[in-house]
Amino acid sequence: MYRIRFHGRGGQGMKTASRILGTAFFLEGFEVQDAPRYGAERRGAPIFAYVRASKEAINERGIIKEPGLVIVADDTLVAMPAAGVLQGVTEDTVILIVSVIEAELWKDRLNFPGRVLTVIPPGEGQSHERAFTGGAIAGAAARLTGAVSKASLEEAIREELIPLGTKVVEENLEDALSVYEFMAEHEGCVAPGTAIAVEGFTPPNWVELPFEDARLSSPAIHAEATSEQIKTGLWRTVRPVIDYELCNRCSWLCSTFCPESAISVNEDGFPEIDYEHCKGCMICMTQCPPHAISGVLEREAKGGEDNET
């Protein structure tokens, strides 16, 4: 059985990718499961989707624990534990990262014994809005399994995306086919995985759940402001940066408008951005009267940080 997991951010088309790949496998005569996994998180937050495909009936369900292929649509997710990109990977897993950074460098960074591949984001250096498309990712997965023909991939894209209009179909087709070609040398590198064996299985560590009275066991939080521990800054793809030369210490409109309470005002009357929680909505940038706030791609901002340290 092929077990494939897509990691991306809400809004990047992971569900679309899983549906396209699911349909493509189905067209090839496979039994298929495809599903997105939603949490409470929204646009920009890490999400994942998955596809199972097998010539036999599929009885597994839910999250894929040991993926044969992991595709990461946004390389900023790799280092984010909450995204769970590396969950359950073994040396037989193939990891494909959509990134401008080379595969070898990723392999070193992750200290991962298996195969790591990268693909440059489609449209990189061109239109920003097209940076990630479900079609491209599905195209990569299709080729890496070697089990999906170009024709099925095309048909699947049309079937899944036609309600979104011909422009979307054409864009996705173009991206998908280009990535499909790009991956030709790795065709079939993702092998179907096997089922969990009974022999030598690891038994679950079941416990007798002890009774705990309601002071402990009611669904209540006996504290304040604990959500501070959630680093929603990880959702950000664009970072607002304040040019303090230009900031005129207005009436801190940026701070008032920031939905996340992520901009505070320091003793000198200058606003400061809490990058751990800023989700990168960029309202501050659009509302700053003297235009003292600009947007920097997170990837580039991160790179800068790396150099500094």
Binding site: G39, A40, E41, R42, R43, G44, A45, A225, S227, E228, Q229, I230, K231, T232, W235, S251, W252, S255, T256, P259, E260, S261, A262, S264, V265, D274, E276, H277, C278, K279, G280, C281, M282, I283
Partner: peptide, 16 residues
């Protein structure tokens, strides 16, 4: 206007 920012960050509300 106050700038106490009592409501803290880290919520799963959508960006913006």
């Amino acid at each position: 206007l106050p700038s106490t920012r009592l409501l803290c960050g880290g919520t799963p509300m959508c960006s913006g």
